[in-house]
């Protein structure tokens, strides 16, 4: 019973931490727009905690570059499990328009494993909500829960 409650909590309360990893701000402001009245992702129990130690889901926007790849890795390691990573925007997925620039490593998956890719340039708030929902579905199957 207690285990069930914990699993239910995991689905119902995905706290996110958002890391801007060299994005153009387009996706960042859309992530922030998700928190605001029109989209209000707190409906799903999502809070932007800003502290990787409290977070369950890591939202990464933007391309990874030579300097921030260490930071990204560090943040990912600080998060206690179980955790999920969502790459947002064309840059987060592959590097987007910048993938041939000299200081760009590429998409987020070059550094840490990514669970969900949210395409778009920038990704719409609706798409970001879809992304979080998809990540939760993935967590559900991992926990062996049937929808």
């Amino acid at each position: 019973m207690f285990g069930n409650m914990i699993n239910k909590g995991r689905i119902k309360s995905p706290w996110v931490v958002h890391f801007d990893c060299g994005s153009c701000n387009g996706c960042d402001i859309e992530v922030l727009a998700c928190l605001t009245p029109i989209y209000d992702i707190e409906r799903f129990g999502i809070i932007n905690v800003g502290n990787p130690k409290h977070a369950d889901v890591l939202l990464v926007t933007g391309t990874v570059n030579q300097r921030n790849k260490h930071v990204l890795k560090n943040i990912y390691d600080q998060m206690p499990g179980p955790k999920a990573v969502i790459a947002i925007g064309a840059c987060g997925c592959t590097g987007g328009v910048f993938r041939e620039a000299y200081n760009v490593v590429g998409g987020v998956d070059k550094v840490i494993p990514v669970d969900v890719y949210v395409p778009g340039c920038p990704a719409r708030p609706e798409a970001i909500i879809d992304g979080v929902v998809a990540a939760l579905e993935k967590v559900k199957t991992l926990l062996g829960m049937t929808a």
Partner: peptide, 21 residues
């Protein structure tokens, strides 16, 4: 340097119309 991508350099491999995007 956490966001430095070096996109000014991209003007050498993209044409001047693509640079708008």
């Amino acid at each position: 340097g956490y966001v430095h991508r070096g996109l000014e350099k991209l003007c050498e491999i993209r044409d001047f119309n693509q640079m708008i995007q």
